[in-house]
Nucleic acid binder design. Sequence first.
DNA 1: TGGGGTTAT
DNA 2: ATAACCC
Length: 431
Amino acid sequence: SAACRVVVHVDLDCFYAQVEMIRNPELRDKPLGVQQKYLVVTCNYEARKLGVKKLMSVKYAKEKCPQLILVNGEDLTPYREMSYKVTELLGEFSPLVERLGFDENFVDITEIVEKRLKQLQQSGCSRVCVAGHVYNHQAINLDNTTHVRLVIGSQIAEEFREAIYTRLCLTGCAGVASNKLLAKLVSGTFKPNQQTVLLPESCLDLMRSLDHIQKVPGIGYKTTKRLETLGVRNVCDLQALPSAVLEKELGVSIAQHIQKLSYGEDDSPVTPSGPPQSFSDEDSFKKCSSEVEVKEKIEELLPNLLDRISKDGRQPHTVRLTIRQFSSTDKWFNRESRQCPIPPHLIQKFGKESSNIISPLVDILMKLFRKMIDVDLPFHLTLLSVCFSNLKDLPSSKKGSIGFYLKQMSPPSTSGKQHSYAFTFLPQEVE
DNA sequence: TGGGGTTAT
DNA sequence: ATAACCC
């Protein structure tokens, strides 16, 4: 019988607020918002009951809810650390874990499901119970092996959520379906701390329930604007649009891709994220208009970044500076960046005590800045961001390197699927 | 409207 | 280097 894929999407509830409530349990039963600059970027459910929404301005949120408690969430370190704990926990079940932002993960559980299915068949057991909700209250047919696989998937999803709760004290939603798109969409149908499985017969109902095409993951702001030009407003419109018309507007590749999405079709694999591809740190502000200020801001950003890179253990080979210039019209789009290779003699200094590399890096970043901005003319920046990328492992010959310990830690195994990126946060002090 | 991330061109 | 996408 043709084995369908089984994918779980795990989506933590108001993640930053949950992390803050763990850090300070007294906030638990109070309305809590997490603030970045003038925004409440997320809030707990106590606050939501009182009318606070995600991405609401602080001013409006305090008007609606004067009792609202705000904590500053501009330093993402606690959230990032907890986020990777969740990904690593899921990695104990399957190596196929893909991160999406800090609070979502996809897990391909096809192999786990197949294993359990065979166990069930061997034991002659024909009774399987669904965990959580079934989308549309669709009836389950246990003679349908796809239904059985997805029901087993719902049990595994429940085990994921249980493990995340008992070991990390975090709650979240899960969606189970035959691909990433559907798993993600169905995970949001019952909201906090619940889970839902989608059976294939309800796929088109789920897609048509989306009232606007921008709710389809993969169709963003720009594509939505272009589709509106064509009179396409909802998923049904997109399904019905002649493919030739769509291809003319968006090109063959994107057109075919998003039209498949509109039918709930998505063959993209769950791609293990592994360790991060880049490390960046940014700050936004009202105004920065002199070279000296720019240098000061960069010097503020670097120590935190160098610390994170040194804990990672790899070395970056590229550095990038990004700026946003003030403009009254079109407020948040005008970002520019310049990047360059990091000179080899500096690369070697990553992971060592950071004091000797900071000033040469500032010099490089200021050169990149001058490539974008003529410092003899007036300028007005509202954001600065520094990003290190093109990360490479240390040469494996070096004793004491991560590669050395990784080989020690994972001998060739006959049975096991050990997760492959536990080393991401292996502390340096193993030396 | 934050402070991050990824992939495709 | 930018543009699109995601949270």
